[in-house]
Simulated assay, not measured.
Amino acid sequence: MARRQQEKSRQTGDELLAAATELFGTKGFAATSVNDITERAGYAKGSFYRHFKSKDELFLRIVADKLADYRMRRDRQITAARSLDDVYAIIWDFLESIVQDKGWSASFLEFTIHASRNPDLCAELNNGVYRLSNDIFAGMVRPFLPEGYPPEKLGAFNTALFEGFLIHNLLGTGTLDTADIRQAALNLAKSFIAAPKEHS
C-alpha cells in the first residue's frame, strides 16, 4: 500500500513537472500560474504544494533535471575529448540545443531576471546544480589547462558569452550565428590561457 502511494506521488510530481515544462516553454515563466500548471496536469492546486513549495522551486527543479540529463550525455562524450577544442565542441553542442529551443531559452532568461531581484533565489540559481559554469565546466576543461589557471574563470566567461548570445538570438538580430559564437568562445579561451597573468 505504501509503495503504491509512493508511486502515485511520484507520478503526480512527474505530471506536474511535464505540464510546467510545456507551459513555461509556450507562455513563459511569469505568465504561467500555479493554477495553469495544475489544470494542465489535471490535479487540484493542493497537489502542487504537496510536491513543491513554489513556482520558483518547480522551475529550479526543471533546470536541475535538464542539466542532469546534459551531464549524463556529457560524461559519455567527454571521455573521448583529447583537447580544449574537443571539450568546447561538446559544450557548445549542448548550448546550441538550448538556443534552438526558443521557448525554453526565453523562459530561462526570464527566470534569471526574476531571480536577480531576490537575493536568496539569486544565490540558489548560482548554485552549480543550476549553472553551466563553475564546477560543471571546470571539471571538463581542467585537464587541458596550464597548471594554476583557474578553470572556473573560463566557465564564467563561457556562460556570460552564451547568455549574451542567447539574448541576441531571441531578439532576432541575425548578425551572429552559433558557428560565430562557438569559434569566438574557443579563440578567446585560448587567448586567456596564453596570457594568464593579464587576466588573473
Rank of each mutant, 00 (worst) to 15 (best):
Y43L: 01
K45E: 11
G46E: 03
G46L: 02
F48P: 06
Y49C: 05
R50I: 00
R50D: 06
K53D: 15
S54K: 14
D56T: 12
F59G: 01
L60Y: 10
R61P: 00
V63S: 04
A64W: 02
D65T: 12
D65P: 06
A68R: 12
A68T: 13
Y70I: 02
Y70E: 15
Y70P: 05
R71G: 11
R73Y: 09
R74A: 13
R74T: 06
D75C: 03
R76F: 04
R76P: 01
R76V: 14
Q77S: 14
I78R: 13
I78L: 14
T79E: 14
T79N: 05
A81W: 04
L84F: 04
L84G: 00
D85S: 14
V87Q: 07
Y88P: 04
I91E: 13
W92E: 02
E96F: 08
E96K: 09
E96H: 13
V99W: 01
V99F: 07
Q100S: 04
D101I: 07
G103P: 05
S105K: 06
A106W: 09
A106Y: 06
A106V: 07
S107G: 10
F108R: 09
F111E: 08
T112V: 02
T112Y: 10
I113R: 13
I113L: 13
I113T: 12
A115K: 06
A115N: 07
R117Y: 05
L121E: 09
L121G: 00
C122S: 15
A123P: 11
E124A: 15
L125I: 14
L125Q: 14
L125V: 13
N127C: 11
N127Y: 11
V129N: 06
Y130E: 08
R131H: 11
R131V: 13
R131C: 08
L132D: 09
S133L: 02
S133D: 15
N134H: 12
D135F: 10
D135I: 12
M140F: 03
V141R: 04
R142Q: 13
R142V: 02
P143T: 00
P146H: 07
E147D: 03
E147L: 05
E147M: 10
E147P: 00
Y149Q: 00
P150D: 15
